Simulated scan of single mutants.
Amino acid sequence: ALNPPPPPPPEPELDEEGNPIPPPEPELDEEGNPIVPPAEEAPKEEEEEPISDDEPEEEGEEEEEAPPEEEEEGGEEDDDDEQEEKPPPTVEEATKLVEKASKLLKKASKVSRRLARSLRQLTKVAEKAMSQREHVVKRVELVKEDALAEVRSFFCTPPATYRAVKAVLYMLGKDPLTFNTWTKCRAHLTNDLFAQLAEFDATADRVMPHWKGVRACCKGLKPAALQAEAVIGDVFRVYVEHTKAVAKACMAQRAEEAALAEAQEKQAVEQAAVDEVQKILDEANERERAANPPPEEPAEGEGG
């Protein structure tokens, strides 16, 4: 068989003028020999990592957790058994407990008795103040007609009477803008005002913003100046004073009642404590008698 003809040599590359471009000169080493480029190594095939027996074969599978170890039963019971039970108190210890509780009860009872006496005194003071105020209210009712006629006859402002009337209006909780002049103040002097004074609850807690205005109006107010102007001014002054006395007495009475109730509650607690420790003492006495029975008496006819 005939050998095939050799392939034609590759056409040389030409430059812009059509001349063949000479091949590049080979790189030479220090001795002048051409440097042969190293042959490219074939890429190594990645080795597959061996599958471990510990890893799951399929994704998503998780190892089963080991069940929690069961606690040994009876552990707590053993601990309780190890703790020694506290022995019951002896007669001497129980007696000391009774004495201590009795002292506390005696102290609480003393406080209750003191508060009860104080409450009785405050009740008498409040009753006396209310009785005196009732007489003042009756007097206000008696002078009502003459007082109204007298006040309406004033064309000029009576300074002392004006302050006394304002004190009453403050106490009743009227709007100060409705009596900031004598003309406005005189408009309040009607039969309805006297009815409100008669029905006013002096035993209730005082509204302190109202009574602040009352104190400001009554400060330095002289009975002689009021009596020189009109009857109603001094009557209103006395009414305000007795109403204030009743309010203060009733407030003190309520405070003492609350204190007494608290003391009596504490006394009941101390009494229950005494009863409890007395029961413990009785049990201790029974145990002691059981542990030390009395000696048996000899029967008649024996011995001698």
Rank of each mutant, 00 (worst) to 15 (best):
C185T: 12
R206E: 06
R206Q: 12
D201T: 11
A252D: 13
A204M: 04
H188M: 02
A230Y: 03
A224R: 14
K219N: 13
K212P: 00
N180A: 05
C217K: 04
A195V: 14
G233Y: 13
A225P: 00
W182N: 11
N180R: 08
L193A: 02
H210N: 15
A225W: 09
C217E: 09
K212W: 00
F200G: 02
T178N: 03
H188N: 07
W211N: 11
Q227E: 15
M208R: 13
V231S: 11
F236L: 07
F236E: 01
V214I: 03
A249Y: 03
E199V: 13
A228G: 11
A187H: 09
A245K: 07
K184Y: 14
K248R: 12
N180H: 12
F179A: 00
Y239L: 15
F179Q: 00
E199Y: 10
A247T: 07
L197M: 15
F179W: 00
K248W: 01
R215V: 10
I232G: 03
W211F: 15
R206H: 00
H188G: 02
N180W: 04
A249E: 05
R186L: 05
P223M: 04
A224N: 11
W211P: 04
D205F: 05
V246L: 01
A230S: 14
K184Q: 15
K184I: 10
T243R: 01
H210W: 13
E229K: 07
T190R: 05
D234M: 05
D201E: 10
C218Y: 08
M208C: 02
D205H: 07
D192Q: 11
D192P: 00
G233A: 10
G213Y: 05
K222Q: 12
A224T: 12
Y239T: 10
Q196H: 10
K248F: 06
L197R: 01
P223A: 08
G213A: 06
F194Q: 01
N180Y: 07
V240C: 05
C218H: 05
V240L: 09
A187I: 01
K248V: 13
C217N: 06
L189H: 00
K212A: 11
R206C: 04
A230P: 01
N191S: 15
T203V: 02
V235K: 09
I232R: 02
E229R: 04
K184T: 11
D192C: 00
L221Q: 07
V240Y: 01
C185Y: 01
A252N: 12
C218D: 03
V214C: 01
K244C: 01
T190Y: 03
F200H: 15
H242G: 04
F194D: 03
V235N: 05
A245W: 02
A187C: 01
A252K: 15
A204N: 09
A195H: 12
V235I: 14
P209G: 05
R215T: 10
C218F: 08
G233C: 08
K212T: 15
H188Y: 08
K222L: 09
A245Q: 07
Q227R: 14
